[in-house]
């Protein structure tokens, strides 16, 4: 099992890890020949968020080499803080590369070698070693992406900094946040709370863009007529989870939100921009809170 790559885009990698680190202490990283996946399972964080991300190798790395017995895939469990720490150390380096040594020493490591200019002008080498736990393909098979129904509506979220302030205030008023959106046009996104002691009801309304899906062209003729375009599809979520997702604002990108009525909220964070030239996507699954409110 061998892996070696030059980390080209350290700031982006660093920011992604900052988001992940605030969410969960440990994450799973899977290196594949074309993509890198970062996975956070819900069992280790209280809010129940899962993150499944696919980042194109070309977004972060160059000179990427990978070799393993399992179809050239390496999966590992790693402490988010240690990886973030290593990346932050690299940030002002001239060149950096990450490599994973084999398990021969019975101690799997992801090591980062970098060269920095010293005060005298000569370059000096540094190495960060991060302990990892290599996951066997059998272990990985048990980890599956959550199954979700076809989303009721898909919208392009407003920019995350504009969402941050209202969501912070709403969170101060209530622990449960109601996210509602319709199909439109006009497409509206509503963030609603009822205060914990019922002393206030607040509703923040954004006008957003509806996202046309191109996935099933066959069904497109029939489907739009079936769905009520005015109906607000609602997901009650923990305000805390949404705040955690909004930590993403440090990475520049666009977000498409998929609302599955009373089931879950899926947030696709496209690094850079949406579409084919996106650098990758971080997918956040936020489960719905089960409550007895009106549907």
């Amino acid at each position: 099992m061998r892996f070696r790559a030059c980390i080209e885009n350290v700031p982006t990698f660093c920011k992604i890890m900052q988001v992940i680190e605030r969410l969960q202490k440990k994450c799973i990283i899977q290196f594949k020949p074309e993509i890198m996946r970062i996975i956070c399972m819900s069992d280790a964080n209280e809010a129940g968020i899962q993150v499944w991300s696919e980042i194109k190798v070309s977004t972060l790395f160059n000179d990427y080499r990978i070799q393993s017995n399992a179809d050239n895939v390496i999966s590992m469990s790693i402490a988010s803080a240690s990886l973030l720490h290593a990346l932050q150390g690299i940030q002002n380096a001239l060149a950096a590369s990450g490599s994973s040594t084999g398990e021969t020493a019975r101690l799997a490591l992801l090591s980062f070698a970098l060269t920095t200019p010293s005060r005298t002008g000569r370059s000096q080498s540094l190495t960060y070693d991060v302990r990892i736990e290599v996951l066997r393909p059998l272990d990985m098979a048990k980890i599956t992406e959550p199954l979700c129904p076809e989303p009721d509506t898909l919208i392009l979220l407003p920019s995350l900094p504009t969402l941050r302030s209202p969501v912070e205030r709403l969170r101060a008023l209530s622990s449960t946040l109601l996210l509602r959106a319709n199909i439109g046009p006009p497409t509206r996104l509503l963030l609603e709370v009822a205060g914990d002691d019922n002393e206030v009801r607040v509703k923040v309304e954004f006008s957003v863009k509806f996202v046309q899906t191109e996935r099933q062209p066959d069904d497109e003729d029939g489907e739009p007529e079936e769905k009520d375009k005015e109906k607000l599809y609602t997901v009650p979520i923990a305000a805390k989870s949404f705040v955690k997702f909004l930590n993403c604002h440090i990475v520049s990108g666009q977000v498409i939100a998929a609302v599955c009525h009373r089931h879950c909220l899926i947030l696709y964070f496209y690094i850079g921009s949406t579409g084919a030239d996106s650098g990758g996507v971080l997918t956040f699954y936020i489960p719905s809170i089960v409550d007895d409110g009106p549907i």
Binding site: P158, T162, P166, G195, V200, R201, V202, K203, E205, F206
Partner: peptide, 21 residues
């Protein structure tokens, strides 16, 4: 009746409706 506040940053931006008991 509640005290109702409608808040907006700009005409194109989001609007917030608050009903305070």
């Amino acid at each position: 009746h509640p005290l109702t506040l409608i808040l907006a940053e700009s005409s194109s931006g989001p609007t917030a409706t608050c009903e305070l008991t």
